[in-house]
């Protein structure tokens, strides 16, 4: 392994493990609960960072899979009581749903814009459908779906196959943080495989990928489904964080937030969306407690500022800035050489 690679994997691994083990010792419970939420949102941000930033699929309704994961966990947890199977279902259901949706979209070869429109529509349909199930006849097994009232008192995670031993808030934090690390390093590993490289190539030029002989439709479907599974895992953790889920999880605002996190952090990076999700979730919470300015207006403002001033996002801008600093001396020499060369133009 090269030094560069050791650093690029080692630094986030060390920081991640330090946060995983250290924060429960350092923070009081209230703050740790807040941080858990930010971690969950970071996982959600990574799901879109992968699908959009590397797969080139602009999914405007990533919250659909987040919400499906949350509801799938809640409803099965009420019915089963033990949380192991519900966790699996919370990941599997959005994955399969996305695979079916992806099949229609990618094998139907609809254009990019329509992928955006369809994914947005799907999450709005889910919102309306779940929202209108308030009356008690809407139930799945022993779980009332609850409509706009949502589902309160969702059974929390237990240690695998040990239903009486439920996770405490600091355990939930550690599960969330470990999930974030697994997802982050998992995506980085995928991007190094042939599948990941083909995916990035599809973003660059889908036609040429097909001329080479790879099935672009299948690759996109797989990436889309994988992203949905990650969003589902985030949904499952989200319910456990608040032991509550309501249809607003499917709302347009929720979908828009995910897109903004990724944009602000930097499309085509992983660290960027993580930082974007954490920073903006923190900001939302702060603004919420101070009642000075409406959070949606603030978000809209941030979005506009970034689109106009930092269109590629923070992380690409910062890395480029550092890069140009490092490269500056050499560039000056190159320019000087050009000027000195006969026929060189200023």
């Amino acid at each position: 392994m090269s030094v560069g690679r050791v650093v690029s994997y080692g630094v986030p691994a060390v920081i991640g493990l330090a946060l995983l083990i250290g924060l429960p010792q350092l923070l009081d419970l209230f703050v740790l609960l807040q941080v858990t939420l930010y971690v969950v949102m970071a996982i959600l941000a990574l799901s879109l960072a992968f699908v959009w930033g590397y797969g080139g699929i602009l999914c405007l309704g990533q919250s659909a899979f987040f919400g499906l994961g949350a509801y799938a966990y809640a409803i099965t947890a009420f019915n089963i009581g033990e949380s192991s199977l519900p966790v699996v279902i919370a990941i599997l259901l959005p994955t399969l749903f996305a695979a079916a949706l992806g099949y229609l979209m990618f094998y139907g070869r609809i254009s990019e814009v329509y992928v955006g429109v369809i994914t947005l529509t799907v999450t709005l349909i889910l919102f309306n459908a779940v929202n209108s199930t308030a009356s008690p006849e809407y139930r799945i097994g022993s779980a009332l779906i609850g409509g706009y009232n949502g589902l309160p008192n969702v059974p929390s995670l237990n240690f695998p196959f040990d239903p009486d031993n439920t996770l405490q808030p600091d355990d939930v934090y550690m599960v969330a943080m470990a999930t974030l690390l697994i997802v982050y390093f998992g995506i980085r590993w995928i991007l190094r495989t042939r599948f990941g490289r083909v995916l990035v190539a599809i973003r660059e030029n889908e036609r040429r990928v097909e001329f080479i002989g790879f099935d672009a439709r299948l690759h996109k479907l797989a990436a889309f489904a994988l992203g949905a599974g990650i969003a589902g895992a985030a949904g499952c953790l989200f319910v456990n964080w608040g032991s509550y889920v309501s249809p607003t999880i499917f709302s347009m605002i929720q979908s828009a937030q995910i897109i903004i996190w990724v944009m602000v952090g930097g499309v085509g990076t992983l660290i960027g969306p993580i930082l974007g999700a954490v920073a903006l979730s923190w900001l939302t919470a702060e603004v919420g407690t101070q009642h000075v300015i409406n959070a949606d207006i603030l978000f809209g403002g941030i979005l506009i500022v970034f689109v106009l001033l930092v269109p590629r996002g923070l992380v690409p801008m910062l890395t480029e800035h550092v890069w140009s600093r490092v490269m500056q001396p050499r560039r000056k020499v190159a320019v000087a050489a050009k000027l000195a060369a006969p026929g060189g133009r200023a």
Partner: peptide, 24 residues
Amino acid sequence: RQPHEIARLGIGIKTQVPSVFDGL
């Protein structure tokens, strides 16, 4: 047949407008 299937059969093409991966 799908373009990728035809490519696998052994028909390769260099298109009129160069079709490469510009970002790589």
